[in-house]
Nucleic acid binder design. Structure first.
Lengths: 337, 337
DNA sequence: CTGTTAGCGCCTTCAA
DNA sequence: TTGAAGGCGCTAACAG
């Protein structure tokens, strides 16, 4: 692979001149410039990005840690981040934490070692203090989907309490009174999962505003995916408690929930209404279409990337929205009583 | 950020010694080793990956080009590739081609410039000769989901003809005779889309084997996503031709198709049966569950990464499966007549 | 406008 | 077992 020296030799100039035309960093005589350009294309010259990064101490890259590359939710998150990356001509480095603390740490470490200009991290498995360490040591890192005390300026997050409240209030407005909640369980006992907690809080607040006391029999926890929603729903059904509506932690659980209901011949929304959170692609194509609370994850991914990149450039906190508001997306899975 | 020199100084040794303990590349006296280790952790030393890459001329990274980060299909592909990457301790660099020739080229260029050890490319927008150029210039690059003449050894692909045949034959076996096909249109006129063509070929072969002559009135083309499936189906319906089953180019189109049918009060599978290709997550959660031809995309992603990495290591072609076979996944969207 | 030169941080002979 | 030194390819003064 040809290097700058080869080009210089062939063009009959010094390497500085080549560097100048490559980076357009200073004027170069027309004829020399042409000679250089010709030599470059003749040798298929490509600047070595490592050498460049080494000397300039920046890599033109953006790191991203997600939980699972195969999950549609992260899919959307990645798309949002990628949009900003390509806009700023940064290469995107992606690592998956696999929802495991060790692997999450490893994923982050890998991106740090590669000296990404900026890093966006989605982490649910790591305890607060470790996330704080990251935030402290990496000045242009940003946390998405989690709010770390004292670092709110470096976090992009959803107002999860409102999400829970909106979903529940909507059900209440449609006349529902016995509303079940299928939520995510925390794999890691030491970790309070703030989003699940906040959504539950919203659910509770909405109920209480209608003078309804939350019934723990109506709460069922499981893993936050289709299978978990399926299991949680069966568990609920087996308890033999009355309910006319189910609020699911996310759309994936709602999908599993609807599948369980279908199997048990419970009609949605005639017998039981279902509402989710996220509004992933799936929601629109479920039958009936899933009414859900929209989580603007793509926009949030873009915001996180934008913030991280701004931190890298300016080393100061830009003005931008960090707390996003969900909004309800009405389809057909909720019935008015 | 501390460098190797700082560590050497603090540990009272030469940088060569530090390098030796970092890379475990030669024996080092126990006490010196300890001193080095201590100095490293004290200074939070992290080897500079650029310097390392510069001198060793390898980057421990794996590049991947996909069409759209937000698409569930690519989501699965990425997961397969990431699995191998993390297995081999390679950082994954992802670029999106956005289904656009210019951006695809740009995405590839970016990964080449970054001198990834190996590259996996999903490209539909670029013409064959440009893909060939890539394959020729990058000896450890692999094409996924496309078969390039003369480079079969560097391609991982599905037997699309069989996919089309299997789907159609299954419908035939269930007693269907008037089978519509909603396929993908090619954005780019100059590009014969081999997978669409091959699936159509399989469809045709299966029909002819039952002495049914393919009716062009039963073919409707559109973009290969939910919206496209929706549109294609409406178009079909408006043509007023008879059919009892629809074979969709992929699950996304099938989902759009089912939505259109629902809107027109056509019951699936009672009035019309639907079959797709891919078996993405969505398929299972549609209602009725979508019968589809399973595309083992995650496994294929892993195979592609594995091949690319092998090419990088050995510079020779390893023995592994390059052509994958689809298999039918039966759910509830097809009715037996 | 142009060339020379000194590093960027690291690995790897080569001697000792 | 250890250290010195050269070089990976490039950028950025600096001096013409």
């Amino acid at each position: 692979m040809a290097n700058i020296k080869d080009v210089a030799k062939l063009a009959g100039v010094s390497i500085s001149t080549v560097s100048r035309v490559v980076n357009n960093t200073a004027g170069v005589a027309r004829n020399k410039k042409e000679a250089v350009v010709r030599a470059m294309s003749e040798l298929h010259y490509k600047p070595n990005s490592f050498a460049k990064a080494l000397v300039s101490n920046k890599s033109d890259s953006l790191g991203l840690v997600v939980g699972d590359l195969g999950d549609p939710f992260f899919s959307l998150l990645m798309r949002g981040v990628e949009k900003l990356a390509s806009q700023y001509n940064k290469q995107l480095l992606v690592s998956s934490g696999h929802h495991d603390p060790e692997r999450e740490k490893e994923a982050i470490r890998s991106l740090i070692d590669r000296r990404c200009d900026a890093i966006v991290v989605h982490s649910k498995a790591l305890p607060d203090y470790q996330v704080m360490e990251l935030l402290e040591s990496q000045t242009s890192s940003v946390i998405i989907n989690r709010r770390i005390q004292g670092f709110e300026e470096r976090c992009i997050y959803l107002d999860n309490r409102s999400a829970g409240e909106m979903a529940t209030r909507y059900l209440l407005e449609q006349g529902h009174r016995n509303i079940a909640f299928i939520s995510r369980s925390s794999e890691n006992r030491h970790l309070e999962l703030e989003d699940a907690r906040d959504r539950y809080q919203g659910y509770q607040d909405a109920l209480l505003a209608h003078s309804i006391f939350p019934d723990s029999e109506l709460l069922s926890k499981n893993q936050p995916d289709e299978q978990g929603g399926y299991n949680a729903t069966l568990e609920l059904l087996n308890r033999n408690v009355e309910f006319t509506a189910i609020f699911a932690y996310n759309d994936a659980m709602a999908a599993g929930c609807m599948m369980a209901l279908r199997e048990r011949k419970v009609q949605v929304p005639n017998d039981v209404s279902v509402i989710g959170v996220d509004d992933v692609l799936l929601a629109r194509f479920l039958n009936p279409g899933l009414t859900t609370v929209r989580y603007p994850i793509e926009a949030m991914g873009a915001a996180a990337a934008s913030l991280a990149l701004a931190l890298f450039r300016e080393h100061e906190q830009p003005q931008l929205i960090r707390e996003f508001m969900p909004e309800i997306q009405i389809r057909e899975s909720v019935r008015s009583l």
